[in-house]
Design a protein around this nucleic acid. Sequence first.
DNA 1: TGAATTGTTGATCAAGCAGTCAAAAATAGT
DNA 2: ACTATTTTTGACTGCTTGATCAACAATTCA
Lengths: 167, 167
Amino acid sequence: MARPYSFDPKAALEAAMHVFWQEGYDLASLSRLQDAMGIQRGSLYQEFGSKKKLFLKALNHYVVHFVDPGIELLTQSGGSGRDRIKRFFDMVPTDESRGCLLCNSAAGVAGTDDEVRQIISMQLGRLRKAFDNALVEECEDQNKRRSEAERLTQLYIGKRVEARTIL
Amino acid sequence: MARPYSFDPKAALEAAMHVFWQEGYDLASLSRLQDAMGIQRGSLYQEFGSKKKLFLKALNHYVVHFVDPGIELLTQSGGSGRDRIKRFFDMVPTDESRGCLLCNSAAGVAGTDDEVRQIISMQLGRLRKAFDNALVEECEDQNKRRSEAERLTQLYIGKRVEARTIL
DNA sequence: TGAATTGTTGATCAAGCAGTCAAAAATAGT
DNA sequence: ACTATTTTTGACTGCTTGATCAACAATTCA
């Protein structure tokens, strides 16, 4: 027995994700966010608590929708490991001038917020592990495999950050 | 016939560079900058014009001191190309939690400021060209060389951005 | 010494920020 | 229709931001 929601929290979160993706954490103002989300200030705070909490949920939304599919591709068993890695990099957009929210946040807000830093570190760790998994067939040396997975992770980050510099 | 400077502009610029490096363009407030530079607001504006102009000069200072030496190493003729590339990557710090100002700016302010974007793009282009130059002996195919130079540039960016996520 | 010139200072400005809150609106149960 | 409960609204708060400016200090040249 209460007033029902007039907005879809998932849709609002997605809109917030795009603002953070486009403008970065610092430049994404509450005014800009509430405009994009189509809700008022109070509703935003009632639903999400704070700007940082909203960002963390938006980041999680991004991971689920844009990182997990890649990790799944690397982890599932269709084709050889090298093949899956090739398909992964074929999927990486090079014309997305916003880059990758995870990588942008690594180079940005992760430097001043320890909680964000840990989350980014953990998510990049998942990607590294997925690369490692895809290399398991062709490389038995655990150390070589680890360092190759590391290289591939860095290559992914580099590709997406560099994409931001070419309009 | 006028009052002389009471501060060293080069030293002030270097201090500003470190603030931008540590905190990023947006979070580097004028108050924080003038504290680090040891000068007052008015002097800062008289000498550097605006926050953005100060940043551009600080970025240039960074390039001269931290990027150019690497480019020189890749370009000069000591040892084989592969050897110079190996030495280049041996020099890349992996424990610098601030990462690289150029890469941080690519993932950050380059997204909202076109002039910055172009400068970063140009500087990364210099690095790519230096890699290409170092590959000239061992690879005659111009296309393969270009794409390998691109890979190495992306690897550099990835290494330095990833370094920011591990304390 | 005094006038001219330039650097330095710190108070001040409007604008924008993240976050709060009391009042209004919309529902469900009685 | 009335009450209880929850959401929504937008004005408001105190604070920080980048930038400006008039008064003041330090120097050079005459």
